[in-house]
Design a protein around this nucleic acid. Structure first.
Lengths: 251, 251
DNA sequence: TGACATTTGTTTGTATACCGCACAAAGTCG
DNA sequence: CGACTTTGTGCGGTATACAAACAAATGTCA
């Protein structure tokens, strides 16, 4: 790709959109400039553009994103058959298990939720399509990493900040690689309160008809309800049932 | 806003992202150019930029959006307290009612789902956060339109394509305006198979502490389970309970 | 098969739009 | 009021859009 095949004004604008998030619903020009590291004048033009197009509101002082911005992500969710196809199966699975069920894919070092059926609220975390979790300490992340060639999985771990969210979090790369091998062999991953105390989950890969892993499917449960060692016997059969049902439907 | 305060390269890029959707997961440069109405060279630069930034994949022929694009919408969903706040209440409501429950806001002529708790799959429609439905024939749409000044509601209807999805769909603007007045008076809207045969729903507005309508809350049910006239007695109390619980939490 | 038409992707030249900077203006605090 | 922060605005040099031409692939038909 040549230097000139890159539209930096577009790239800068996307960076500005991403400046909004978590604890930042409202941004002033100066704040957005600080977060993005871009020039204030540039940020101002991007924000005014967003506002002009209806992707943002401007009260003269602060900018806020509007629901129109969801069209951008929706272009992906609706364009990808994945989320549409799995949703009904997910609802069914969630109902049978009496627990939340989710499907996610890998994006860099993180898993991204593309569909979710929640039975009851899971702990302090509130997950929805588009939500992200670090792959190394999430059950679906383990499954997705295990599906990659070892070198690639190791490479992803190497650029992940492996921090111990709880005392149980595995953070040693070699230990994690060994865990990935086990996941690959057994066909499922179990997480016992590595992400958050009190939260367990079990995941299996979702494969397409050709056997390629295209996503991961999991069930999450409060540790108070179900001990980690029970996850396998209680939920693995249900997960595998859904896994098998979806296999011919995915491409 | 001055002419020069608009970054057209950014605007063009966003248009390119929106070119992906529903039946278009994969686009060639020429296709994207046709859909957006932009020059092929311009579209090419936008797509290559997206690809360079990891928002799209390119196989030499077709471009596909990657899950990274969800970060853009996620900036809204997570930045907006709305979806985070309502989700647990929604799960609870859905469980009590034994039916799907959703929260949405208005964007132009459409309602956009910002949160959802699905109990069982609702007919052929598969809805998730970011999904859109025309406001005029959805229960939440009626509630949200009813909250606007009449002139504005009429204006929105005037630029909506009022098509009859089913024989029961109301498509006459005057009839719809009358319906909106009734919704405003009664405080809830009931839809009886206007969107899809076999699907009923009931919605109420969600107000913040100052009494401003900030979103709509609904319960949808298969007509086979619950006749439309039963919706009110069975679900309205539950909806109102949730409505009241959320009121002091919204701003 | 081979010649022609059509579509698609890429490059080029030129007019224009945009970025970053420096400065002006307007708030915002003590 | 004066220090400080934030926002708005002209300006020069650079990057980008557009149109048009070119190149390559694909389709069409005798």
């Amino acid at each position: 790709m040549r230097e000139t095949d890159f539209v930096s004004g577009f790239a800068r604008g996307l960076k500005v959109i991403e400046a909004f998030g978590e604890a930042r619903p409202r941004l002033s020009i100066a704040e957005a400039a600080k977060i993005t590291g871009l020039d204030r004048a540039t940020v101002r033009r991007s924000l005014l553009t967003l506002s002009e197009l209806g992707y943002a509101d401007y009260d003269g002082k602060f900018f806020t994103l509007t629901p129109k911005i969801l069209r951008l992500g929706h272009a992906y969710l609706s364009a990808t058959p994945l989320s549409m196809i799995v949703q009904p199966h997910l609802d069914q699975l969630s109902e049978k298990a009496g627990q939340s069920a989710s499907v996610s894919v890998l994006d860099g070092t993180e898993v991204v939720y593309v569909a979710r059926a929640s039975q009851r609220r899971v702990m302090s975390i509130n997950l929805m399509p588009g939500s992200r979790l670090p792959a190394y300490c999430a059950s679906m992340g383990r499954v997705l990493l295990a599906a990659l060639p070892e070198t690639q999985a190791r490479e992803i771990l190497s650029r992940t900040e492996l921090k111990a969210n709880t005392p149980r979090t595995k953070t040693d790369p070699e230990e994690l690689m060994a865990e990935l091998r086990r996941v690959r062999e057994e066909g499922h991953a179990v997480i016992d309160q590595e992400l958050e105390l009190g939260l367990c989950s079990i995941a299996v890969p979702l494969m397409n008809a050709r056997g390629q892993v295209v996503a991961a499917l999991n069930i999450g449960a409060p540790a108070a309800h179900v001990a980690a060692f029970e996850l396998v016997e209680r939920y693995l059969p249900l997960l595998q049932e859904t896994q098998a049902a979806l296999r011919p439907l995915l491409r």
